[in-house]
Simulated assay, not measured.
Amino acid sequence: MSEPTISSRRGAFDRYGSTSPASRPDGLADILERVLDKGIIIAGDIRVNLLDIELLTIKIRLLIVSVDKAMEMGIDWWRHDPMLSTDAQALADENRKLRERVEELERDGE
Rank of each mutant, 00 (worst) to 15 (best):
S2V: 14
S2C: 11
S7V: 06
A12N: 11
F13A: 11
F13R: 14
D14Q: 08
Y16V: 01
Y16P: 00
G17D: 07
S18G: 05
T19V: 09
T19L: 06
P21G: 03
S23A: 09
R24V: 06
P25M: 03
P25V: 08
L28E: 15
A29P: 01
A29Y: 05
E33I: 11
R34C: 09
R34H: 14
L36G: 06
G39W: 00
I41K: 08
I42F: 05
I42K: 04
I42W: 03
I42S: 09
G44D: 10
D45I: 12
L51S: 13
L51I: 13
D52S: 09
E54L: 14
L55Y: 03
I58C: 00
K59H: 15
I60G: 10
R61K: 15
L63R: 12
V65H: 02
V65C: 09
K69C: 02
A70L: 12
A70M: 10
M71D: 04
M71Y: 03
E72L: 09
M73A: 12
G74I: 05
G74M: 06
W77K: 10
W78C: 05
R79E: 05
H80T: 12
H80R: 07
D81W: 00
M83V: 02
M83D: 11
S85P: 03
D87T: 09
A88S: 02
Q89E: 08
Q89S: 07
A90G: 11
D93F: 04
D93V: 02
D93I: 04
E100W: 05
E106W: 02
R107N: 14
D108H: 07
D108I: 05
G109P: 01
E110H: 11
